[in-house]
Design a protein around this nucleic acid. Sequence first.
DNA 1: GCAAAATTAGGTAGTATTACCTATTTTATC
DNA 2: GATAAAATAGGTAATACTACCTAATTTTGC
Lengths: 217, 217
Amino acid sequence: MEIFSEENPLRIILADDHEVVRAGLRRILSIDKSIKIMGEASNGAEAVELVKYHKPDVALLDILMPVQSGIEATEAIKKLVPETLILMLTAFEDSQHVELAVAAGADGYLTKDIDAKELVRSIHRLIKGERVFSKNIINIIQKKYIPDYDTTPEAIVITKREQQVLNLVAVGKTSAEIADELNVSIRTVESHRYNLMQKLGVKNTAGLVRYAVLKST
Amino acid sequence: MEIFSEENPLRIILADDHEVVRAGLRRILSIDKSIKIMGEASNGAEAVELVKYHKPDVALLDILMPVQSGIEATEAIKKLVPETLILMLTAFEDSQHVELAVAAGADGYLTKDIDAKELVRSIHRLIKGERVFSKNIINIIQKKYIPDYDTTPEAIVITKREQQVLNLVAVGKTSAEIADELNVSIRTVESHRYNLMQKLGVKNTAGLVRYAVLKST
DNA sequence: GCAAAATTAGGTAGTATTACCTATTTTATC
DNA sequence: GATAAAATAGGTAATACTACCTAATTTTGC
């Protein structure tokens, strides 16, 4: 697998019509020294030009842009430079946009409410060959577009033990208290919590509690 | 103010008819080296004898005990050794028992679901002259019994800013993210979180989220 | 305008969670 | 009994939260 470093960076281009968004992306991506931004575009057509010129590893595209949309740009890019991976970053959470983007050849689709770390991580996953989608997006996408992503129709399966842990988390118990109550190691509880967060697509205790409480009411 | 240490310990007696409970209390209290258990009783009458003999700083009494209840014992103790502070520790959450206990002279009333740290802290508060009650208990108690505990009729007042923070906590944002969103220091957000936890009688993020979610549904 | 309440935020330190990874042991299920 | 899934739990490190305390500004209510 390819290793990226400051000397051999993961090359990327950005496209978003809002300077603020680009500034934010620049800031976020700057935390990872192995990522280098080769260029920035403010519309789809510019993005295509940048990709033709730089042949970056990844193109980060907004959907809604003037002149040419991110989806149109995706189609063009996939024809011209198929090896460039395309990550859509947008505010749209509806299935239509996601489906269009995927059909056009996007390799990932993230909503803009993603946080910094997750964005960086997503880019690295893309590079590894994974297709990345925000958890909220996954629920929306038709399996047909990503046949090998998940064989089950995206049903969240919480095991018995996980459910027990979740219930205890939801009433405010700490991992230590839960471990004590279930007579297991604190590390086991932590594993369950971690796996639950992955399954539910949340990133902390708050998300777990929220899910548990809303589920039970 | 009196300072307790291993040499000059805070002297305490326990009374509960269940050995398991006493064992648990011993274990919990052993974490604070400045607390020394002078004796243990399995009923109210024994508890009164122990108090007469040891004149402890604090007597930790269960309500439901054979021979003599914790409430009867409280009355007796307050007559014989008024300087001994009495902390009721019970499973009853109804107002009747609380009122009876307070009327009998109890200085605090905790439910058994209290956690270790909170119990130890409660004992130290008692010593400082505070009357301590579990948050769930406070809502129950008539103000008349604790006139100087809180002048307002125990209405939880969440300020505007606290509500904003609470909402953001409930959707899974970290303090750093909240600070960013509200344009304040992370320390400010932490203060709000801390104050919210105090006000709502919960001890962690889970409690805050639970409250917020249940409130909104 | 003044007093009270709210908002702000630093200090300090301990505790808990999160993010992965790996790997062994149980338990179901066919 | 083989295989997969679930439960167990250690390693390591970074990040986040919790527990108080103190105190300076704002804001608000009377």
